[in-house]
Computed example of a mutant assay.
Amino acid sequence: MSQNIIELNASEVTPEGGAFCPNPKADMQLWNTHPRVYLDVAHSGEAKCPYCGTVYRLKDPSSFHAAH
């Protein structure tokens, strides 16, 4: 199974630096979804969903801190 990596712009995360999974960019089918979870991507630049293993990564972590 290949790992999904979703790259996010600073504008696509919450002001606190979070993202949610499932995310529309993850392109999951309804039958394959899981409970919505909050992932802190701003702290380290990426976070992995504990349910599906999708990795959410900031394209440019410094842009988040500049924008917020």
Results as ranks from 00 to 15, higher is better:
1 M>H: 04
2 S>P: 14
4 N>V: 10
4 N>D: 12
4 N>Y: 09
5 I>S: 11
5 I>A: 08
6 I>H: 07
6 I>M: 06
7 E>D: 03
7 E>H: 09
7 E>S: 07
8 L>I: 07
8 L>A: 09
9 N>I: 00
9 N>K: 13
10 A>R: 05
11 S>K: 10
11 S>F: 07
12 E>R: 00
13 V>N: 02
13 V>H: 04
14 T>Y: 06
16 E>I: 01
16 E>T: 12
17 G>C: 02
18 G>F: 15
19 A>I: 11
19 A>L: 03
19 A>D: 01
21 C>Q: 10
21 C>G: 14
21 C>H: 11
21 C>A: 15
22 P>N: 10
22 P>L: 09
22 P>S: 10
24 P>T: 04
25 K>I: 01
25 K>Y: 02
26 A>G: 14
27 D>V: 07
27 D>T: 01
28 M>E: 14
29 Q>K: 15
30 L>R: 15
30 L>Q: 13
31 W>A: 14
31 W>Y: 13
34 H>W: 06
34 H>V: 08
34 H>C: 10
35 P>K: 09
35 P>Y: 10
35 P>F: 07
36 R>M: 12
36 R>H: 02
36 R>N: 10
37 V>A: 07
38 Y>D: 13
38 Y>V: 12
38 Y>Q: 14
38 Y>I: 03
39 L>P: 10
40 D>M: 04
40 D>H: 02
42 A>Q: 05
43 H>Q: 14
43 H>F: 07
43 H>R: 12
43 H>D: 13
44 S>C: 03
44 S>H: 05
45 G>M: 05
46 E>W: 05
46 E>N: 07
46 E>I: 00
47 A>I: 04
47 A>R: 05
48 K>N: 08
48 K>S: 11
48 K>P: 00
49 C>W: 02
50 P>I: 04
50 P>F: 08
50 P>Q: 08
52 C>L: 09
53 G>K: 03
55 V>T: 15
56 Y>F: 14
57 R>Q: 10
58 L>A: 06
58 L>T: 05
59 K>D: 08
60 D>R: 00
60 D>N: 12
62 S>F: 06
62 S>Q: 06
65 H>I: 01
66 A>L: 09
66 A>T: 09
67 A>T: 00
67 A>E: 09
